[in-house]
Structures are given as C-alpha cells and as structure tokens.
C-alpha cells in the first residue's frame, strides 16, 4: 500500500522528472535562484568550514601533534589503524553494535510515543514536556543519576526487578551488560525525535484518514497505510540523523564510564573496554595522546562509514519515501 501511494505521486529524491513543457520553461532559470537561496550556506562553508576540513584531511597523512609542523607519513596512519590498532578495531565494533541496535530502537519507540502524544489525551502538554526534558539535562547529572538508579544495591531498577522475582543485574559494571545498558539509555534521549515526529504528524491531511476509514481500516491499518507513507520524509530524516548521531556517540559513554571526575587519565571505555566508542577513542588519541594526525585518519574513516550509510539509506528509501 505504501509503495502504491508513493508510486502514484511520489517524486524521487535524486532527480524529479519535469511534468510538462510549461514546466521546463519555468525551470530554466532555477539554477540562479537556487544558488541564491543556498548562498548563506556556501559563504559559511567557505568561511568557517573549508579550511578546517582540508587541514584535517591533510593531517590524516601526517604525524602531527598540533604544535610542531606536521611530518608527512603518506598512508602510514591508515595502514597502522587497520593492521596494528586493536583499540581502533574494538571501538569500531562497539560503535557498530551500538548503532545497529539503538537507531532502530529509538526510532520505533519515538514513533510510537509521537502517535500516543498526538492523541487527545488529558494533560498532553505536560506529557510532551516530560518526554522532551531528559534531552536537556547536563550529561554529568544524568551520569550520576543512572549510576544511582542502576546500581545493584538499592538502585531503583534492580529493586523493581527483584520485586517481580527477576535476578539483579549489574548494569554498568559487568562487561556483558554495559552495552545493553547504553543502548537502553539512548531511548531516554529520544525527546527531539518525538518532537520532530509530532511536528510531522500535524500536516497529515485528515481526509486521508477519513478515506481510509471508509475502506474499513482500523487504527493499525491507518498508521500503516496513511501515517507512515505521509510521514516518510520525516522518518527518513530521523533515520539519517540517528545514524549520524549514533556513530558519533560521545557524551553519554564518556561521562558514564569515566573521563569525567577523577584522575587516572585513561579512556572511558568501561570494563574490559566493552563500551569504548569510536568518538571517545578519537578524542583520547587527539587530545590526551597528542596524535592529531592519527586521530584525523580515524575521523575520516568514520566519515566515510557514516557518509556511505547515510547515502545508502537515502537511496534505498527513495522507493518508499513519499514527497508531494
């Protein structure tokens, strides 16, 4: 059903077929207005971003400690990453697992909550605020909170588990549980995704629901046949942003598993490096070990991964995403 609707009126993202000769005439001048409209970004990019980007690409082929002139190494940083660095591999694998589970989970949960919070239930503004708020609490505060809620002795979560006869779980201290905990904790930050979904739900035309209802569709069919197709551009947005954010996850693991208060200098990798994340490792290499060239190589590998995954999602979703 979704594809049928999309096929009937959907326009592919990459290029859109012009519908008539009249259109073609109107379109001829669109390059200039197009560039004019995007000119703020072009100026900002050239001014603030181009130099740092090119500089960091160059660093990735050098030994560079940020103070002394970079020493050219060719591809040595890249080969060292792939052949010698077990922490790099560990961080890459951990981050991949985190993204693989947290992105779909967060998207699904946020979508469900957006639907629920779009219903006319009493106290709706309060509920919406409550769902959004965890996203703005300082990460140091949340780290302490979770270590209190999740600890094995008197932690609320384990007290609840015990009450229903389940075993107590060492959420943040056992290498087997740190990753599931981090994935579950990501749900707690879905506020912005819910808000974006809610905004998207506002312009789904009611007559589409009415029409579907005339066909005898129940709530689940309505969601499947109307809401999801009509919301598909927003779903795609949240998916791509979710991939970008998950693969660069930094603050939560960094603060929860060390790195914050206290000494010792080590990276925030959790027990047995079980939640050593890519961006955390990158930060450590760059700003604690002063290997900026090596960190830049890591950054560009991560970039290539995120970019190809995002592009894949966009291309793949063209078949499903419905634009007016």
């Amino acid at each position: 059903m979704a594809t049928r609707i999309a096929d009937s009126g959907g326009i592919p993202l990459v290029d859109q077929p012009f519908r008539s000769n009249r259109w073609r005439r109107l379109r001829r001048g669109d390059l200039i207005p197009g560039l004019l409209f995007i000119s703020p970004w072009i100026v900002g990019f050239a001014w603030f971003q181009l130099y740092p980007i090119i500089a960091s690409i160059r660093y990735s082929f050098t030994d560079y400690n940020m103070m002394q002139p970079p020493i050219w190494l060719g591809f040595a940083n890249y080969t060292r990453l792939f052949t010698e660095d077990d922490l790099f591999r560990k961080a890459l694998a951990n981050t991949a697992i985190y993204a693989l589970f947290s992105v779909p989970l967060d998207l699904f949960v946020a979508f469900c909550f957006a639907l629920l919070l779009n219903l006319r239930i009493p106290g709706r503004p309060i509920f919406r605020t409550a769902f959004y708020f965890p996203a703005v609490i300082p990460s140091v505060a949340t780290a302490i909170l979770w270590s209190m809620l999740l600890n094995t002795k008197g932690g609320l979560v384990n007290v609840a588990l015990k009450a229903v006869g389940l075993p107590v779980i060492p959420w943040l201290t056992s290498p087997t549980w740190t990753m599931p905990s981090l994935i579950l904790l990501s749900v707690w930050g879905i506020g912005p995704i819910v808000v974006i979904f809610l905004a998207g739900l506002q312009d789904v035309p009611r007559e589409l629901y009415e029409a579907a209802k005339l066909d005898g569709a129940g709530p689940f069919r309505l969601v499947r046949d109307v809401t999801i197709p009509m919301l598909s551009p927003v779903i795609l947005f949240n998916l791509v942003i979710g991939i970008i954010a998950a693969l660069q996850v930094f603050a939560q693991p960094f603060v929860i598993f060390g790195g914050g208060q206290g000494g010792g200098g080590g990276a925030a990798g959790g027990p047995l490096n079980s939640v050593l994340m890519y961006s955390v490792q990158l930060y450590t290499v760059a700003f604690q070990q002063f290997q900026m060239g090596y960190a830049a190589a890591m950054a560009w590998i991560l970039f290539a991964i995120i970019f190809s995954l995002s592009l894949l999602s966009i291309r793949f979703s063209n078949r499903f995403v419905h634009y007016e």
Partner: peptide, 22 residues
Amino acid sequence: DLVFYLVLATLMIPTWVTLVPL
C-alpha cells in the same frame, strides 16, 4: 542534490579534528 549531500556531509565530520584549525 550533490551539493545537498555536501551539506549533510559536514554533519558527519567528528568535531575533534576540526577544532584546532577552526
């Protein structure tokens, strides 16, 4: 769309490596 992907791409560069040049 090519330029648009470039806009998206700027979101994907880890900030730690552009911090010092910036």
